[in-house]
């Protein structure tokens, strides 16, 4: 290995550019996680409805994301929806939409699971002391459900962060794309650049996701143990 390829990161503005790319990835992930979680909570509450119709619609919505790969959804939105509606959407916008819808579906399932796992007498007692619908959720159900759903929700966030890596495939200039550009420009000087850059990206994603999964596991052991 001639003159350590790891120097590729120190050339020019490479480190700063990678950081900028990371910010694009982070922006997509953060917006999608926040909006997706909020929508998911609403969906989860609606899902506990007794109406068979509402439950089926929610279930179908979730299964659509469980059966069709996320990359296919990105393609549908990026190529399909734009063609049908004859509009132009940026890759980043499409990514945020797809990840938000997916996050909402998965989060809805987690919230539903948490709400349904609460003992029935909690609802009945709440009603018996005269709480309204909002009061019931605000003071009785949500605080208890949060404990049960938080490990799953953090796990979902980890999955979403990992899946943001796909946005490069619909042309978003994310951290991976920047890495590829660096590989391209330093092809002559540093032939081993792709080894180092992809190795770096591997570690980078690990450093972001690992703490999240440790946190999720800790909470699970603490609250369910």
């Amino acid at each position: 290995m001639q003159n350590l390829g790891i120097n590729v990161f120190l050339k020019g503005r490479n480190m700063i550019r990678l950081f900028e790319g990371l910010m694009v990835t982070a922006r997509i992930a953060l917006i999608a996680i926040i909006i997706g979680s909020l929508l998911g909570i609403v969906l989860g509450v609606v899902w506990t409805s007794k109406s068979k119709w509402i439950r089926s619609v929610c279930r179908i919505y979730l299964e659509m994301f469980r059966i069709i790969p996320i990359l296919v959804w990105l393609f549908i939105m990026y190529f399909g929806v734009t063609t049908v509606l004859n509009i132009d959407l940026s890759g980043e916008f499409v990514s945020i939409i797809v990840f938000t819808l997916w996050g909402a579906a998965e989060m809805g399932d987690i919230v539903r699971g948490a709400l349904e796992s609460l003992p029935k007498h909690q609802i009945e007692s709440g009603k018996a002391i005269g709480l309204s619908f909002w009061g019931l959720y605000r003071y009785i159900l949500i605080p208890q459900a949060v404990r049960r759903m938080l490990p799953g929700a953090i796990n979902l966030a980890t999955r979403m962060v990992k899946t943001t890596s796909l946005v490069v495939l619909i042309g978003v200039i994310d951290v991976i794309k920047v890495g590829q550009q660096i590989i391209e420009t330093s092809r002559i000087e540093v032939p081993t650049a792709s080894f180092w850059v992809y190795g770096f990206l591997f570690i980078l994603y690990f450093v972001i996701c690992y703490p999240l999964s440790v946190l999720s596991r800790r909470l699970e052991n603490k609250w369910n143990g």
Binding site: S194, F202, Y205
Partner: peptide, 16 residues
């Protein structure tokens, strides 16, 4: 578990 498949593939295919 904590790294995306895409990066794993890129590393295997282009890096190695």
């Amino acid at each position: 578990r904590n790294t995306p498949l895409l990066i794993q593939l890129f590393f295997l295919y282009f890096g190695l």
